[in-house]
């Protein structure tokens, strides 16, 4: 008959390192992200040829065309799916590992 099966495990966990980190309460604590992680996007203006294919495949309408036939990304509408990166024939779009995207106004959340 098993009762209190977790007792030994729970007791030894008192002395081991915990599985959580003090992310925002201590400065510099965090867990690193991997290289395929899709964070905030980065856009190479010079490589872009203005084909506007990314606008047709963006699910949330986060990409809009500007006057010089280049594009503008709205980070607050982006869902970080990565389809624009796949569709672009010139590899002008990439994703960084920045996930702490905070701003005090919507104008700062635009990548040109």
């Amino acid at each position: 008959m098993k009762i209190g099966y977790m007792l030994r495990d729970a007791f030894w966990s008192l002395f081991k390192k915990p599985a959580t980190v003090q992310y925002l309460t201590k400065h510099g604590e965090g867990v690193p992200v991997t290289e395929r992680y899709r964070g905030k996007m980065v856009y190479d203006r010079d490589a872009c040829i203005g084909c506007l294919l990314c606008i047709r495949t963006c699910p949330s309408g986060a990409i809009t065309v500007t006057d010089e036939r280049k594009v503008m990304f709205r980070v607050d509408r982006c869902i970080f799916c990565g389809q624009c990166m796949e569709t672009c024939p010139k590899d002008a779009i990439g994703f960084t590992s920045d996930f702490e995207i905070v701003a005090l106004g919507r104008e700062e959340l635009v990548v040109r």
């Binding site: 992200v33 991997t34 395929r36 899709r38 970080f80 389809q83």
Partner: peptide, 11 residues
């Protein structure tokens, strides 16, 4: 996260 780039929505 290592293989697909997302923890919840793998795409």
């Amino acid at each position: 996260e290592e293989t697909t780039g997302g923890r919840v929505h793998h795409s």
